[in-house]
Each structure stands twice: as structure tokens, then as C-alpha cells.
Design a protein around this nucleic acid. Structure first.
Length: 718
RNA sequence: GGGCGAUUAGCUCAGCUGGUUAGAGCGUCACAUUGACAUUGUGAAGGUCAGAGGUUCGAGUCCUCUAUCGCCCACCA
């Protein structure tokens, strides 16, 4: 048979892939509304929106590949498939990135620029970043519906955010309170517990007395906070201190008058240090809770700039680190310091700015996770987060992650949702004199001023599965595509994101956001190191696509990468799959070279005359049935390996080799063999398509099949 | 401190519900090849499945303990 002259040269991914992607887009089949046939069941994946803080890395490439595999597979199986792409404004991350750049280039701070100008700059940056991301996603071959693309900070998502905020506010679940929060002095904003990274640092533990006549010694690594102490807590069963419980002392500590009450609290560990704990309610989370239990005052001694707000000249206005030295030398001079030990300590730092987190009491907005929700029995938001997993309505793959999920929920505290940054959804609350108004839109009348704060970025991304479908409007998309099927994401955001999606969906819609959570691991370099800018070992998916082809990159990411486990990627591995693409190319060349047009029509689905050819087809049927079962069970790492192995080492190395004898030597069963080759090979292309969509589609376009459509909408063999 | 995971060929890893001589890719060695493909083919070497015990007719796979490594959570102040 005459073949396309393209086959005389090796496969050229660089020139093929962009052409094929265009073909797909023009077909309209990325959009489920345009899919042909009677597709009753929907299959939906919401793409985890990449942050608009820069470019995509290999982790994103893995995410896109996995989701594209799932979507393409289900599309070929006749589902109404929607894969909805989008990007995340990533509030703090984006703002602090732009702030840093402006500081570096122009030497200006955000306050020099002002809210409006700063926001303009951030939006410009976000737009650029968005455009880069979108082009990268296309290069990877993602068959997502661009017509429905969403952004976590656009108007539609804002309506969803404000609607939810108001509902929670009216239900008494969102409250404004003066509570201790994680304050980032560098970023000048509160941050949530999950935005903290602990860094182990060498530190000192000081053991001392407040004054010579005070009966109990205490230990601390932060002496400067001790001017804010209001109590000393001991364990109720600690006989060493029983006689002091309930006594009160007026003291002067480093020139600051303090009033100390001795209290008994079972949270105190009698074995640690002296077994007595100086209670500083305003600057320590557990001390704050202790103050709740014992009704203690909460004097603040450190401000938002991590500077002292009390004391004489030697202390007032000093940075906490300097104040620490002042206090320590004061203790020494007064013979109060009993012990000084070197210890390793976990210091809380802000994920985005690196600033050392200072616990401070602040007036902020919180979501109460322990309060019964009106008209939901006695259920709390915490219950909404754990129930779907307990009742097996949501399945996590691999399932051992469920255990850590419950552990996290158990330890959950009220969620601080307000941030003192400008880039984000503004808190939909307005103030006028003593009045407060919470609403979806600004109140009527003069003199209202909106809250300056914005919301934690996870507040809006928690609604991603339904805000993207038009909620709170009643849309056809909501009816058709929600709850979604799979949420595919990295295990590192199981808590901050997945849990909050379950919360937001349970609260707003009284249902689940998705049925299955598929977690992938971290993509590391060839030596097993995390890819990072500082190491310079990152691989840009665009470079891979240009050098080896997106298909090769996709296979290298998938084969052998089990769910939830980290994987290593190297150019050698990718190169191997570039060779595979070429192998497929040449197999096609051989097949087309040696068969006749009539072997294509009709494709045999029922027994061929000859027993041997029949058994080849039967053997392959077993292979793809096995692969189908892997696909159904999210074992893409096995499915991809199996089709690879079958094509190269069974079909090419053995079946084609023996076919040479039969066909080239003109055996009498040559015709049956040709038909069998065509039959198996066309099905191989279908099975391989979700993994290597470009090369398979390109080859498909050159096959002489009657009434064929794009391979992406061909029927999966069964 | 609590929790979770890993340990299989020189390297990187698969091995789904326990079932015949334990698999792949890369690497190594030997050979082959002017007819689909050197981005190739054929073949070989290479593993007491971390260690010890247990359950079972049968264990890389299940249980217990030990060792090493990794990750997550947690403000021993």
C-alpha cells in the first residue's frame, strides 16, 4: 500500500504536536456540549488551578498528564467529559512575589504605591503568569475545555465567595473576634496554621525566677515575652507546688510591674524544665487557651512590628531579639538566672515571606468549626469534613492518606480567614459608626466603609468544584457536572485544600465535591532531590516538549509512578519514550507498507477464518481488558507499562517479525495476517492514545479508515 | 512527642485480592543487521525480595519485633 512520505523520516514531535493540538481545539470536542453520540453519563474533573505566581513545573506536568489520561479514557468510553481549567490568584503568594520584585527593581514598598496602584501591578503580573501557564498546559496536550476556564478571583467566583460568606455570617459560623493569631511581621498580615513552616534552629532555654523572693523557677526560650506574664501554671498533681496554687504576687520584672497568679492546669508537663510554666496569654497559643480556662488578663507586650510595647528606655520599642538580650543580662545582673541550656527549637516561619511568626491577639474574622450549623442537627463544620470519608462517600487513593486526614481534622482549630493584604476577595462587610453590614453587595446609603481585609485564598478555592460551574446561579452545568468525579492533586495539599472543598461543598450544597481523590507524589530530579530554583535542578515542561516531545515527557512521568509516591525523572528516562514514539512511527510504516487497503474494511471484530490469527487477536484482547481494568482502578502506572511492553516487545519484536515471513514470502494466509495486523494495531493506537495523544492522533489521521473521526473521540476497545 | 510510608537486580522503580522457575527500564557484556526502525534486533550475566520470628499446603505479598531512611502533624514552655 502506498504510504505517506512522512514515514520515510523519523517521527518529529516538535512539528507535529502543535498542529495536532490545533486540530483538537478546532474540533470543539474539549467542550462536552459538542461531543457526538448519546452521552448520558457525565465525567468531570476540575483542574487544580495553578497559582499565578510564575511558570509550571514538572509537578504540574504530572498533574496535567494524569488528568488528561483520565479524561481522554472516559471520553473514548462515551462519557460526557468535562475537564475545566483555571488558575488561582494565590493571594499572599502572588502579592508577596510582586512586592519583592518592585522592592528590588524600584526600591518601593506597597505602601509607597498605594492600594490601587499595587493592585494594578499585581493584576498585570498575574495576567502574564496566567498566559504562560495556559500555553504550557496546551503544550502538554491537555484536552480541557477552555471555553469554561475560570479564575479564583474573577467576578463569578466573587459572587460565590460573598454568597458563602454572608450565609456563614448569618448562620453565626463566621465571627469577628479578638483572638490570638499567627502574625507575620514581615508580610504584615495574619496567616493560617497551614501557611506556617517550622524551621529547626539552635536556641537557648533559660531557667530563672521573676524575682529573688518568688518561690518558683520557670523556663523559657523567649524571656522577652515574660514581661507579659500573668500566671505560673503547674500540674495539679505536682506536689512540689501544691502549697502555692491560688496565691498571687505583685512583682517587678525587668522594670515592668507584673501580677502573677499560681494556677493548676493539667496541660502542664511536670517533667519538662522545672515543671512550672510562665503563662503569657497574648503571645502564646496554648497560654491563650489557658487564659480562657482560668479567666486571666491578656496584656499585649509585643506589637505588629515585633517590637516591645512596654518597659523603660532599655526595652520599649526594641525588637524582640534585642529585647531578649536585655532581659537575659538583667536576669544575670540580678542573680536570677539559674540555668542556660542549648536546645533545638522549631521556629514558626511564614511560608511566603520567611518572617518569624509572632503570635498576637488581633481583631480578625474566623470560621467556627465546632459550632452546630443551623438546621443541620448538631453537625459542625468539622463533622461535614469528616463524614463523607467515614461513610465512604469519598475515597482517597492511596487509601492510607485517609488516616492522616482524620488526624488533621481532630486537631483543627477555628480558621482565621482575614488577611491584611490587598490582593484577594475583600471581606464583604461594611462599617458605619457602630453599625456593621454583611452582604453580597455594598449597602445603600452614605458613609459605609468596607472592611480593608481580604480573605484567605483557600476560602475561594474551597468552592472550586461548584463556583466554576456557575453557583450560586442555578445552572445547567451544576445539574450536569456536580458532584465531580475525581479530584487529582498532590498529597501536600490534602489538608489545606481538599478538606476545605469538602467543607464548603457540604455546607453550601449539602453534598460532596467529588467521589474520588487521587493523590500524586512529588516529582524529583534524577538524584531524588526536590526540584527547586536554588538548586537549579528544575526541568521546564516546555523544554522537555521541545526536545523530546510532550508524549515522551508524559510517558516518563507516568510509567512506574504509583499513586501517592514520589518519583524521579531524568532526561534518560524521557529519551527512552522519545524512542518509543519513533518505534510506533516505524511500526505504522511497516504495517501500512505491507497491508492492502481492503484489510482496513471492515475491521474484524468477530472471528477470522484462520485459527492462528484469531489467537493473536484473542491474546491482545486479554491485554487490553487487563489494561482497562487498570484504568478503572487508577493504576495508570501499570496500564502505561503494559501497553508499552505489548507494543514493543510483543507486537513489534515477535508478531511483526513472524509476519514478515508470512507476508513477504507470500504465504497463503498472508491476507488474514494483514487484516489481523491492522486490527490489532488500530486498537493499540486507541489504547495508547490517553498516554501519548499526539503521536497516536497523527498516525490515526493517516490511516485509511472509512468514516473515522478524530482518535480522541474513537471508541475505547471492548 | 504523635502519625504515616519505604527498604525487591549495579542504578531507578513495578509487583493490584498471598499461588507455578521474582518483573520492567536504564546500565554492563557478547553477537547480529544493506528491507519498518542504529531512536535497532538476539542473547547473557546479575536478586538468600533489609534482618529475625510467626500464620499458611504455600509469603516479596498477611502478623509481630528490630534496624536504617523519608514524609506529615504538633509552639516541651
Amino acid at each position: 500500500m502506498e504510504i505517506n512520505e512522512k514515514f520515510l523520516k523519523p517521527y518529529d514531535p516538535a512539528n507535529t504536536e502543535s498542529k495536532i493540538y490545533k486540530l483538537w481545539e478546532e474540533s470543539g470536542f474539549f467542550n462536552p456540549d459538542n461531543l457526538l453520540g448519546n452521552r448520558k453519563e457525565s465525567y468531570t474533573i476540575m483542574m487544580p488551578p495553578p497559582n499565578v505566581t510564575g511558570v509550571l513545573h514538572m509537578g504540574h506536568a504530572l498533574m496535567i498528564t494524569l488528568e488528561d489520561i483520565m479524561i481522554r479514557y472516559k471520553r473514548m468510553q462515551g462519557y460526557k467529559t468535562l475537564w475545566l481549567p483555571g488558575t488561582d490568584h494565590a493571594a499572599i503568594a502572588t502579592q508577596s512575589k510582586v512586592e519583592k520584585e518592585i522592592q528590588k527593581k524600584e526600591g518601593k514598598s506597597r505602601h509607597d504605591l498605594g492600594r490601587e496602584e499595587m493592585l494594578k501591578r499585581i493584576k498585570e503580573f498575574a495576567q502574564q503568569s496566567h498566559d504562560t501557564i495556559v500555553s504550557q498546559v496546551r503544550v502538554m496536550g491537555a484536552s480541557c475545555d477552555w471555553s469554561r476556564e475560570a479564575f479564583t478571583l474573577d467576578e463569578k467566583r466573587n459572587l460565590a465567595v460573598n454568597t458563602t460568606f454572608k450565609k456563614m455570617y448569618d448562620d453565626g459560623l463566621i465571627y469577628r473576634g479578638n483572638r490570638i493569631v499567627n502574625w507575620d511581621p514581615k508580610g504584615q498580615t495574619t496567616i493560617s496554621d497551614d501557611e506556617i513552616v517550622y524551621e529547626e534552629r539552635n536556641s537557648k532555654l533559660y531557667t530563672f525566677k521573676y524575682s529573688a523572693d518568688f518561690p518558683i523557677s520557670i523556663s523559657t526560650s523567649r524571656p522577652e515575652t515574660k514581661v507579659g506574664d500573668v500566671a505560673v501554671a503547674v500540674h495539679p498533681d505536682d506536689t512540689r507546688y501544691t502549697e502555692y496554687i491560688g496565691k498571687e504576687y505583685d512583682l517587678e520584672f525587668a522594670g515592668v510591674p507584673i501580677h502573677i497568679k499560681i494556677i493548676a492546669d493539667k496541660e502542664v508537663d511536670p517533667a519538662f524544665g522545672t515543671g512550672a510554666l510562665g503563662v503569657t496569654p497574648a503571645h502564646s497559643m496554648i497560654d491563650w487557651e489557658m487564659a480562657d480556662r482560668h479567666d486571666l488578663p491578656r496584656p499585649q507586650v509585643i506589637n505588629e512590628y515585633a517590637k516591645m510595647t512596654v518597659g523603660g528606655e532599655n526595652l520599649l520599642g526594641k525588637k524582640v531579639t534585642d529585647a531578649r538580650e536585655v532581659i537575659v543580662s538583667w536576669l544575670r545582673e540580678n542573680n536570677l538566672l539559674e540555668k542556660e541550656e542549648d536546645i533545638k527549637q522549631n521556629v514558626s516561619t511564614a511560608e511566603r515571606t520567611g518572617g518569624i511568626v509572632e503570635p498576637l491577639p488581633k481583631l480578625q474574622w474566623f470560621i467556627n468549626v465546632n459550632k452546630p450549623i443551623p438546621e443541620r442537627g448538631n453537625k459542625t463544620l468539622k463533622d461535614l469534613m469528616s463524614e463523607p470519608l467515614k461513610e465512604n462517600k469519598i475515597k482517597i487513593i492511596p487509601d492510607y492518606f485517609s488516616k492522616t486526614y482524620f488526624h488533621w481534622i481532630d486537631n483543627l482549630r477555628d480558621w482565621c480567614i482575614s488577611r491584611q493584604i490587598w490582593y484577594g476577595h475583600r471581606v464583604p462587610v461594611w462599617y458605619k459608626d457602630e453599625e456593621i453590614y454583611c452582604g453580597i453587595e455594598a449597602p445603600q446609603g452614605e458613609g459605609w466603609k468596607q472592611d480593608d481585609d481580604t480573605l484567605d485564598t483557600w476560602f475561594s478555592s474551597g468552592m472550586w468544584t461548584f463556583s466554576t460551574l456557575g453557583w450560586p446561579e442555578k445552572t445547567k452545568d451544576m445539574d450536569t457536572f456536580h458532584p465531580t468525579d475525581v479530584l487529582e492533586t498532590g498529597y501536600e495539599i490534602l489538608f489545606p485544600w481538599v478538606a476545605r472543598m469538602i467543607l464548603m461543598t457540604g455546607y453550601n450544597l449539602n453534598t460532596i465535591p467529588f467521589h474520588t481523590v487521587y493523590l500524586h507524589g512529588t516529582v524529583r530530579d534524577g538524584q531524588g532531590r526536590k526540584m527547586s530554583k536554588s538548586l537549579g535542578n528544575g526541568i521546564d515542561p516546555l523544554d522537555i516538549a521541545a526536545k523530546f516531545g510532550a508524549d515522551a515527557g508524559r510517558m516518563a512521568l507516568i510509567v512506574g509512578t504509583a499513586p501517592g509516591t514520589d518519583s524521579k525523572i531524568s532526561e534518560d528516562k524521557i529519551k527512552g519514550y522519545k524512542n518509543f514514539a519513533n518505534k510506533i512511527w516505524n511500526i505504522t510504516r511497516f504495517v501500512l507498507d505491507n497491508v492492502d487497503e481492503k484489510n482496513f474494511h471492515p475491521l474484524p471484530t468477530s472471528p477470522l477464518v484462520n485459527g492462528e490469527e484469531n489467537s493473536l487477536i484473542a491474546e491482545f484482547k486479554k491485554v487490553y481488558e487487563d489494561i482497562t481494568s487498570d484504568m478503572e482502578n487508577y493504576r495508570f502506572h501499570l496500564a502505561s507499562e503494559k501497553i508499552y511492553h505489548y507494543i514493543w516487545h510483543r507486537f513489534a519484536d515477535e508478531i511483526i517479525e513472524e509476519s514478515k515471513k508470512i507476508i513477504l514470502e507470500g504465504s497463503e494466509k498472508a491476507d488474514e495476517r494483514k487484516t489481523a495486523l491492522v486490527s490489532i494495531w488500530t486498537d493499540c493506537l486507541k489504547i495508547l492514545h490517553p498516554f501519548m495523544p499526539f503521536v497516536t492522533e497523527e498516525i490515526w489521521s493517516m490511516l485509511l479508515i472509512k468514516d473515522k473521526n478524530l482518535l480522541m473521540v474513537e471508541k475505547w476497545p471492548s
